[in-house]
Simulated scan of single mutants.
Amino acid sequence: MKNEQEIPKEYCPYCGKNLIRILLEKEQGKYNIQYVNEKVGISNWDSIFAWKCPYCSKTWGREL
């Protein structure tokens, strides 16, 4: 596994919870990735225009 410093961190602007989750070893092997972003994208047919936190359920625009 990479150093803690190499794993990106992204926080909810409202509740401050880290939205990056490190996967378990067996999940890393299965999906060939080490971490996932848990924020939920809100989109129209073309693009994401806002994000939603899965912990506090608040939304914010792409400019934040």
Rank of each mutant, 00 (worst) to 15 (best):
G41P: 06
E10T: 09
K30D: 00
N44C: 10
K2M: 13
P8N: 09
G16K: 09
W51E: 10
R62G: 09
K39W: 13
I7D: 01
E38W: 02
G41V: 02
E25K: 12
R21Q: 11
N44D: 15
K58Q: 15
S47E: 14
E63T: 07
I48K: 09
N3F: 13
K26A: 08
E63S: 11
S43N: 10
P13R: 06
E6D: 15
K26E: 14
Y14E: 06
F49H: 12
N3P: 05
Y11N: 15
Y55N: 14
F49M: 01
K9S: 14
S47A: 15
N32I: 02
E38N: 09
Y11Q: 11
A50Y: 06
E4G: 01
I7F: 07
N37W: 04
E27T: 07
K17H: 08
L23M: 11
S43V: 04
G29D: 15
G61I: 03
G29F: 12
K17I: 06
D46L: 15
W51D: 11
G16I: 10
G41M: 03
W51R: 00
L23I: 03
L19D: 01
Y55T: 06
W51P: 02
K52V: 06
E25G: 10
P54C: 04
S43M: 12
N3W: 08
E38H: 00
E27W: 08
Y14W: 07
E63G: 11
N3T: 13
K39P: 04
E25W: 01
C12G: 07
D46C: 13
I48C: 06
K2R: 11
P54V: 02
C56D: 13
S47Q: 14
C56M: 10
E4A: 11
Y11D: 13
C53M: 04
N44V: 06
W60S: 02
G61M: 05
A50I: 00
V36F: 03
K9F: 01
K58G: 01
G29L: 07
K58E: 14
I20T: 05
M1W: 04
S47G: 12
Q34I: 04
G16W: 05
Y35P: 00
T59E: 15
I7S: 06
K26T: 14
K17T: 02
C56I: 12
I42N: 08
N44M: 08
N18F: 05
K30S: 09
E38T: 07
Q5L: 13
I48Q: 11
E6Q: 12
G16D: 03
E63C: 09
G61N: 08
S57P: 11
